[in-house]
Design a protein around this nucleic acid. Structure first.
Length: 303
DNA sequence: TGCCAGGCGGATT
DNA sequence: AATCCGCATGGC
């Protein structure tokens, strides 16, 4: 086992591991203490979080914990650069926040969860987990990814225990719809199987060479990926920080706080809210709003 | 019980 | 292009 510690005080901005991992952005991490990622975040403690990744094609397990200005990690390989990338430790939050609108809701959201970063998930896990996210609660989306790992993922020995890597496209393409339905994936089961198969057949997930709206359109090639899920993949995996997924929460936010941005259809509403949230990092700000509102924030901003 | 959860695919108009 | 409908599962 390799281990190390990252000095968070040396970063451009403060960091909050729990907010980053429990804000409904990534479903590819779990808590070692077995606590669910609830539908509202219970703060406190310094839990270990685990995830898996592929390094040079080989599955690896990584475990991290935050203690004040230190991020302790233990892994099957040297994980420092992987964590720096996956958790976007180098982001300059002050510069990002400076692009956001100067309104009370945004102010409160950034204040409440300062240190939260966007995640940078691996593309295939991002694709599958957000296909699973359709009409589903945050806590159950996590459970589904656990089930997929345990049922189809390659076993990895780490610290005297056996873990399972997130399945590869080949492993999920080979799954049957029945097997996937048995994991309580419901009507998403054939979407997961077919999209995994499309990946093995060469349909690209990494569309980063395309401009934002074309990239979103390209991802809808996958089954179970509409505009909203495509935006999540672009934002949480492919580095399109301007992407604002229009889910039920952000639609409600638009209705209540930015009613002029409701243009009736996805494309135009997306453009309007993206502009209202400052453009380049609109998705970053959206993620703060999503986490803040989902945890009951904003109730004091009476109309 | 009925409604909702980070919606999508397919058919219809 | 817009709208309607069915779709699994579980929590409240």
């Amino acid at each position: 086992m390799e281990q190390g510690a990252i000095d968070l005080s040396a970063l451009p901005s403060g960091f909050d591991l729990q907010s980053t991992l429990e804000s409904g952005q990534s479903y590819l991490w779990w808590r070692e203490d077995g606590e669910d990622f609830g539908d509202t975040t219970q703060y406190g403690g310094d839990a270990w979080y685990l995830t898996t990744a592929r390094v040079d094609g080989e599955p690896v397990v990584v475990r991290v914990r935050q203690r004040d200005d230190r991020l302790d990690w233990e892994a099957t390989v040297d994980a420092e650069s992987l964590l720096t990338r996956r958790l976007r430790l180098g982001d300059d939050l002050d510069a990002i926040r400076a692009t956001a609108p100067d309104d009370e809701l945004v102010e409160q959201a950034y204040e409440a969860y300062w240190g939260m970063r966007l995640v940078n998930d691996p593309p295939f896990g991002s694709l599958i987990s957000f296909i699973c996210s359709a009409q589903m609660r945050v806590s159950r989306i996590h459970e589904m990814q656990q089930s997929l790992r345990e049922a189809f993922g390659t076993p990895v020995e780490f610290d005297d225990s056996t873990y399972h890597a997130y399945p590869t496209p080949e492993q999920l393409a080979a799954a049957s719809e029945t097997e996937l339905r048995d994991l309580s994936l419901g009507y998403r089961a054939p979407y997961v199987q077919r999209s995994a198969e499309l990946v093995t057949e060469g349909t690209p997930i990494d569309v980063r060479d395309l401009p934002y709206e074309e990239a979103r359109e390209a991802l809808t090639e996958f089954v179970g990926v509409g505009e909203k899920v495509a935006d999540c993949i672009l934002l949480f995996s492919l580095g399109y920080d301007e992407a604002v997924p229009l889910d039920t929460w952000i639609r409600g936010t638009i209705e209540e706080y930015y009613p002029d941005c409701d243009r009736g259809n996805y494309t135009e509403t997306s453009r309007a809210i993206r502009e209202a949230l400052g453009g380049e990092y609109a998705g970053y700000t959206q993620t703060y709003l999503f986490h803040f509102l989902r945890n009951g924030g904003g109730d004091n901003l009476g109309e």
